[in-house]
Design a binder for these strands. Structure first.
Length: 220
DNA sequence: GCGACAG
DNA sequence: ATCTTGTCGC
């Protein structure tokens, strides 16, 4: 007999928190990735005043970064935006978009935090775990944690800390721009995550994966 | 009780 | 996230 996934979506913040607490222990913090031939960018946008969630996934070959496949999925929005619970709002549409993919990407770059989360289970951890694909969280702003000065040169970074623990890196992807917040999702280490984010970034602040996905999810 | 707060 | 054009700065 095949295991049946009876997955109910939380109907409250309390339920969502309980799910995060029960799943965070399953996250693999070490490098458990194979040869990376493709990387995927994931982003979400909204339509009709937020009532519809639109997720976009774009797969690029690696290290070339040329687009090879993309998918978009729309789902009724069923969870509010509450800091610390972003994955419950975005994951349903993202998982639907992933199912439309013919390619199974070797690495995921998610638009949000991974380990750099109050309960160490941000969007990147949640998606990586549910899909069982190595994942990285690349956020445009900070959720939690403190850090020192970030060298103003591409590749310069400062450790992001919380409660005496290093939860991510504040990384300068380009000189003269606001740094991005990188943290591990699933099956990857922070050092490796930083390396891949830099290798997916060319001439802009955000990785090419994120830029492509954002265009598909939000642009007309 | 007063701020902070991914997208 | 989203509503939205031009404008300041390197």
């Amino acid at each position: 007999m095949k295991a049946h996934h009876t997955r109910t979506w939380p109907n409250s913040i309390a339920e969502a928190r309980a799910i995060q607490e029960s799943l965070r222990g399953k996250v693999v913090a070490r490098d458990r990735l194979g040869k990376i031939g493709t990387v995927a960018g994931i982003d979400v946008g909204f339509e009709n005043h937020g009532t519809v969630t639109r997720a976009a996934v774009v797969v690029l070959d690696f290290p070339g970064l040329a687009p090879v496949e993309q998918a978009v999925a729309r789902r009724a929005t069923r969870f509010p935006y509450v800091p610390g619970y972003l994955s419950f709002r975005e994951a349903p549409a993202v998982l639907a978009a992933m199912k439309k993919l013919r390619t199974r990407p070797d690495l995921l770059l998610c638009d949000g935090q991974g380990l750099a989360h109050p309960r160490r289970f941000g969007l990147a951890c949640h998606l990586g775990l549910l899909l069982d694909i190595p994942s990285i969280g690349v956020a445009k702003s900070r959720l939690i944690g403190t850090h020192g000065d970030v060298p103003d040169e591409k590749g310069g970074w400062a450790a992001l800390e919380d409660k005496g623990e290093i939860i991510g890196a504040v990384l300068r992807t380009r000189a003269g721009v606001k740094p991005v917040y990188v943290s591990t999702g699933h099956r990857i280490s922070l050092a490796t995550a930083i390396d891949y984010v830099l290798r997916c970034t060319t001439r802009y602040r955000l990785p090419e994966t994120t830029r492509h996905a954002h265009r598909l999810a939000s642009a007309v």
